[in-house]
Every structure is written in structure tokens, then in C-alpha cells.
Design a protein around this nucleic acid. Structure first.
Lengths: 176, 176, 176, 176
DNA sequence: TATGAATGAGCCTTCATTCAT
DNA sequence: GATGAATGAAGGCTCATTCAT
């Protein structure tokens, strides 16, 4: 049921999507949509929330806390790209949407904060005061790569990790 | 006239912004708005277009084609962040908005393509077939850093470049 | 079961009251409500009917047909005000509601007709052709006084009768 | 434009009346209705307000402050019934409607308060502490008579005054 | 030419009402 | 026999868009 909503939202955008459309796609009637998931805004947030949770969970499942930090990082990224590759609609598009729309920025920011925090812990500690913005930029690179994955279906999502590895200094240049 | 539109769009978001509002802010009447800039969608695209053009131009002006590639890159980035810092409304917010909204993705993609192309020419040529996605990810990191700049006014935008330098392998790892 | 309906209707008004709400308050499920009392409109009419019947009955019980007409009248009024005082929800509010709403005006009119008829028989017979409208106005005064009683709980409802006696010529001016 | 609204509201009741219907009847389009008169609730209140103001004005115009109190009263009543007779839709029905509907009770109460006050000043001062409820009941009788007038078109509205005179002790039984 | 005034079209939301269990 | 779950239908409201002045 959320699946249908995610599909429609991702295909048409938040505002262009109509509740009629979503209800139809979900195979239920509009009043049910409202009964189960509340207002359109709440529905969108629910979508966002589910996708974000799943994504974060997929990453957490992949990261081995006992491994060395950089391996954790690459494992996490691999999981990330794999997930995005498997949830085109779900993640990337919702994410792209929610980023700008005011009522949803908060939700996205929260999720990104979780990821930045996760990443921050894995970055070399050479420059403590810079960690936040640097991690932020790293997440940006990762997201862009995710967009690339989404826009190039059929390609092995594992490549994304390899390519990032080429771009980023972290794995080789550890200085901590 | 576009200035007013940009200001309103960035403050309220594409859908929340009303043509009344924009016409008022521009000091003209709605029919004129339509006469000069067409539909709301076209108006937004016009805004996007102008901001994108200005940004790219600012970068091109800063890059010295005769300088070594990596210096070109860092000069371009400095210009980029300086521009974004000076055009908060114009760039970041419009950009954040347009990214997801279907009718505008094309325009954003076009601009990003220009930047990717620009960057691609400056990246080390070690892996020709990977250049596009890697440049794409780099642009993503840059955009994220731009967001960070926009969200932290008062900070020196020059820091953004320094920080990116710390993140990216490019300056040191040149292998071409 | 009607009690719940009356309570809800009086508290929230006919349209604001939902069948869900009423069913909940009655401790049964909506389909039962429909099975027993039919449509919402019919339900409201049923409420109206019961309250009207009870009120008229209370009056009839109080009036002693063998007493002189004006004593009958005052006894009836006393009973009326006492009843209204004891059935705030039931009478006044339903009545106030039903008066304007088109589908219910008939029911209210019917009840009022019964009261007018009752009163007509007790009025001095000086002007036979005028009896109906005069009785009608008298009933109006009585109803207004009833509203006053309802809006001033805690006051002795007996006062209402005294006050009406001051307003109306009837007890003194009998000419039949 | 308010005329159309009054007509529709009186014919169909507040809730049954649709804005489409009213706009059609007014010969304009719905957005204009909203532009000029705001929300449906506000529209209804505007109707109420206008009718109430007109009615009170008609009464004030008829009352001669220099005349003796009881003559003032009868003059006011005559004007009242004449007005109601000429504004069937406008007054009686709106009044009947607004009385019960919660958001409008205030408006009606305000108008009635004005009338009660007006009447109170004209009642014999024999029982000062009772004046309010008694005046209230008197207004009720007057309103009922107004209903009768509305429900019997073609009859001379002057009769209403005569009949009230028969009912009420005031004109003859003055004791102040 | 520039605008005040007007509208068609559509969206979100809510209930009274009824099946299938 | 009783209900949880489902819906058709409609209503208020807004906004991009355009005539008539």
C-alpha cells in the first residue's frame, strides 16, 4: 500500500500526484487511504520514513562494527548502492523530492544526519573540527553516485563503490 | 523581474508560490507576467536557466585554461562556492527545488552535465571509461558542500575548497 | 439508544454529529444503528418524535380536564417548564435545531400544532377567528421562556410561569 | 449578490446549500463568491448581518422616541411585521436557521439582545429584576407571530399587531 | 498597452451508507 | 445476528490562466 504511494510519488512528484491516483494504484479507495495513512502530507512522510528506515537498516546490517573503520565504510557503501539499485523508486526519487519541499526537509535532514554521523565515525580523525562538513560532502558524493546508479539501471552497482574509491582519498591516505 | 520570481520561489517553494505574489513582488500585473514569461512552469525554467548560466559563467571566468588542470579545478571550485555564497536564493534553493520536480529535472540535468563535462576534462585520465560517473560524484560532493555553505552563512566560503581538498584524492593522486 | 443519539445531536448539532459518534455513544455498531433506526434523517426524526411525545404527555398528565380553563393552562405551563428544565438536551436543543432544517420542520410543526390546539381550547373565546394565531404567538412566548430556562440552569423553573403570568393578559382578561 | 445567497440559504438550509448553487444563482462564479465574501461561514454571517441590520433599522425608523412608550412599542411591532412580511426569505428563514447552528448563534443572540434591550426600555417598570426574561418571552411571542405572518402570505401583516395586543397585557394593564 | 475582474478545473477531504465475514 | 472494513459521491476551497476595459 505504501508501495503504490511510493511508486506514484516517484513517478509524478509530490504535488502532481493525486490521492485518487494513489488510491487507484493501491487498489483501494480514497477513504481507506485516509483511514490508514492520514493526510497526503502524512502519507508522504510515511513513505519517506519507511524508505529511510529500510535504507539505514540495510547499511547497519552490512557494517561489521568489529572491522577496521575503512572496511566498515566500504561495506556500508556497497550496501547502500545495492539498496538504492533495488529500490529505485523508493529511495532516490523520494529523496530528490523531499529535499526541497519545505514540510519534508526535516525528515530528510534527520536521515542525512544519521548517515553523516555514521560516516563521521569512520573518517580519519586528522581534522576533528572539519569532520562534519567533510562528512557532509562525502555523503553528497555518495548520493550523487546513487543518482548515477539509479539513472543507469543494468550496471553493476558494485562499480559505484569502486569508482568512489578512486575519487576519495580516505582508503589509501589514512593519517590517523 | 526574474529577480522577484527567484526571491519568491526560493522563499516559498515552487508550488506554494503564487503568480499573484510574484507579480506583486515584481511590481507588475499578472497579465504582463504571462505576456513576458509565459506559463508558471516556463517562468520557473527561465529562473533556473538564468541562475545556471550565471553560475557556469562565473566558473568559466575563474578558470584559466592555460593553468595546469588541478589548479583550474580548484580555481573553479573557489569561484563556485563564492558564487553560491553570494546567490543563496538564486542557486541553492532553486536547485534544491528543481532537482526532484519532474518538469525541471531536465534543466538541472543539463546544467549538471555542463559541469560534469567541465570537470571531466580536468580529472586525471587514468581510467577513461570511468571518468563520467566519477566526475558526477565529484559534482555531487561539490553540491553538498554548496548546501553546507548556504546553510552556514557567515563562514568563509573559501573553507569549502580547503575541505574538499582534504576529502578528495585528486590533487595528490594524479597519475596521468 | 435514542438517548445516545439525543445527547450527541444536542451537543454537536445535526450535521456535525457523525453516525460513528452516535453508534459509539450508543455502544453498538453502525450497521445496527441503520438496521434499527434507518437513515440519519429518520434517526433524528425519531429523536424528535420521542421527545415531543414525552413532552406533550407530561403536559397532558399535568392538566386536569375538570379544572377551570385558566388553571389548566397554568398547570400545563408549569409542567412544560419543569419538563424542559429536566430534559435540556432532549427538548430545547433538538427543538432549536429542527426548527430551521427543512426535512424536520414538518415534525416540529406537527408538535407545535398539537400544543396550539391544546392551548386554543383554553384561551378565552372572545374572538374565535383569531384563536389560532394568538395561540401560536402564546406558544412562541412559552418556547422563548423555555429557552430562557434552558440557558439559565439552576434557576427555579417555576419562575417562568410567574413571569409569563405577568406578561400575558389571559388570567385577568377572561371574557368568555 | 447577497440576495442570491439569502434566497438559496432560505430555500435549502445552510448545509444543504452548496457554494456552486449560490454562485450560479448569483450569476457569478464560485471564485468570485470567495473573493468577495470569503468562506461559506462568513457568507452566511454576512447574510445574517445584513438582514439583521435592515430589520433593526426598519424598527428604529418607525419608533418615535418622543411618543409614549406603549405607542413606541406598537409602532415598532407594526414595522417589524411589515418588514418580515416583505422579506420572507431574508428574515424569518435565516433566523430560524441560525438559531440552532452553533457558529451563528452568537450573531442571532446579538441581534435578539438588541431587540430585547429595545423592548425592555418600553416595558412597564413594575418588576425591574424580571424585565430581562419577560422581554425575552415577549420577543419570542413576536417572533412566533412573525413566523405566522411568513407562513400566511396574503394576510394583512397589520393583523399581527392587533392579535398581539389581544394577547399581551401591556397596552392596557400598564402599572408603572 | 496594461490591468482588474473573472473562471474552469481540480484537489484534498469527509461522511452516510453498505457488503463480506 | 453483528461488525470491521470499504466506498460513492459530493463539498469547500484555491489557483493558474485569460477576457474586456
Amino acid at each position: 500500500m505504501l508501495d503504490a504511494a511510493v511508486a506514484i510519488f516517484s513517478r509524478r512528484g509530490y504535488h502532481a500526484a493525486g490521492m485518487d491516483e494513489i488510491a487507484d494504484a493501491a487498489g483501494i479507495s480514497k477513504p481507506m487511504l485516509y483511514a490508514y495513512l492520514g493526510t497526503k502530507e502524512e502519507l508522504f512522510i510515511a513513505c519517506l520514513h519507511r524508505e529511510a528506515t529500510r535504507l539505514v537498516q540495510a547499511i547497519l546490517d552490512a557494517v561489521r562494527p568489529e572491522a577496521p573503520p575503512d572496511e566498515q565504510l566500504w561495506r556500508g557503501l556497497r550496501a547502500f548502492f545495492r539498496f538504492v539499485d533495488a529500490h529505485r523508486d523508493g529511495w532516490s526519487v523520494l529523496y530528490r523530492q523531499a529535499r526541497g519541499q519545505e514540510p519534508f526537509a526535516a525528515e530528510v535532514a534527520a536521515m542525512r544526519a544519521r548517515m553523516v554521523e555514521l560516516v563521521s565515525g569512520l573518517l580519519p580523525r586528522s581534522t576533528p573540527d572539519d569532520v562534519a562538513p567533510i562528512a557532509y560532502a562525502l555523503v553528497g558524493a555518495v548520493e550523487a553516485m546513487a543518482d548515477w546508479v539509479v539513472d543507469h539501471p543494468g550496471e553493476d552497482p558494485g562499480l559505484a563503490t569502486t569508482r568512489l574509491r578512486k575519487l576519495l582519498v580516505l582508503p589509501r591516505g589514512r593519517e590517523d
